[in-house]
């Protein structure tokens, strides 16, 4: 067991726990955001750098602070470690930088994006983003492609979290898609178009934190916040059969796995459940699903802006100031 203090809250966790997992055990505000880490996928995490934290005391044995911010999703706790997340202004500034980097080439096409409302990047930019982009150059663009029969890939929106690659590696046989090219033109793609057809490939859509991978049976049918989530299950030979139905009236618009508050699936579901069973008669409906997320998708979201710690007036002021400054210089 190791004792770790995160933002002044001490918790005892088993050895080998990562800082992020320890923070999730505490819960609340101390949990760093994570865009690429997925607890159910091995070796995920470490790429997006949004979960960076400051370690002010390495351990009881070696109390030196770590020289650089570390990725909390891949750093294991040591006994006596002291971690600063939201209490360190430097760190919040650094995280702001990371969010800005993630957004500079993101198309911000939320109004036409199916992920809007349940998008982690959207939440992240609400919490840590700037009101106005400082990036003034052309954003990079890719063609939209179908990587599988039912999966559409919008590479423009991708933040290269590698989660879908890990799903293909660890859940499906014979991975047929991956990252090609490098640097800022790196893209997720398949060698042969439409090649992703494994029975569990649909989970790529669920693990995608942004709207890069979308379900072609649901695209443009409805905004997610207009649909009603319902817990449901069926006897499935391939998977647990426990899903969330997103309904409008009596119509099942889409089927996804059940996601927890960090957007992680409770269990992966098969493609049959996801794409083929779109009638209420296919399912035993358990009841409405409560979604606990700081996102539009949660009910009454806009009433709790204070909870999100967003000062709307300040953001507005900043935007206006930036606008004025620009006019002055011109």
């Amino acid at each position: 067991m190791a004792k770790v203090t995160i933002d002044g809250i001490t918790i005892e966790v088993p050895d080998g726990t990562t800082i992020l997992q320890a923070a999730r055990m505490i819960g609340g505000d101390v949990v760093p955001p994570a865009m690429c880490y997925y607890s159910k996928l091995e070796t995920s995490g470490g790429y997006c750098r949004t979960c960076i934290v400051k370690v002010t005391k390495g351990s009881e044995k070696d109390p030196r602070p770590m020289p650089k911010p570390v990725a909390s999703c891949r750093t294991t706790v040591m006994d006596g470690m002291v971690v600063e997340n939201t209490v360190s202004p430097d760190l919040l500034e650094a995280r702001k930088g990371v969010v800005e980097f993630l957004l500079i080439n993101h198309p911000l096409d939320c109004p036409i994006c199916d992920q809007a409302g349940e998008c982690h990047l959207q939440d992240l930019s609400y919490e840590h983003g700037l009101a106005k982009s400082r990036y003034e150059f052309k954003r990079r663009e890719f063609e939209q492609i179908d990587i599988g029969e039912k999966i559409k890939l919008h590479m423009n929106r991708c933040i290269l979290c590698y989660r879908c690659v890990k799903v293909a590696d660890q859940l499906c046989d014979g991975r047929v898609h991956g990252v090609i090219n490098r640097g800022d033109v790196a893209e997720i793609s398949t060698y042969i178009s439409n090649a992703v057809e494994n029975d569990f490939s649909g989970n790529m859509i669920d693990v995608c934190p942004v709207g890069a991978l979308t379900d072609r049976t649901f695209r443009f049918k409805s905004r997610v916040w207009f649909t009603k989530p319902m817990d449901a299950h069926r006897d499935c030979k391939k998977c647990s059969g426990k899903v969330a139905l997103w309904m409008s009236g009596n119509e099942v618009l889409r089927v996804t796995g059940r996601k927890d508050r960090y957007g992680e699936l409770e269990s992966f579901i098969c493609n049959d459940c996801r794409y083929e069973k779109k009638n209420t008669t296919d399912w035993n409906i358990e009841g409405p699903r409560n979604i606990e997320r700081h996102s539009v998708i949660s009910q009454n979201h806009y009433m709790s802006l204070r909870q999100l710690k967003i000062d709307v007036s300040k953001q507005k002021e900043l935007a206006e100031k930036a606008h004025r400054d620009k006019q002055n210089t011109q």
């Binding site: 980097f101 993630l102 080439n105 150059f137 640097g183």
Partner: peptide, 21 residues
């Protein structure tokens, strides 16, 4: 550096290109 960034983590992937531009 922009050309040689591997594209794995976001600060380097996006930042090097931005600096170059």
């Amino acid at each position: 550096y922009h050309h040689e960034s591997c594209g794995q983590c976001s600060p380097c992937r996006e930042g090097t290109g931005w600096m170059e531009k």
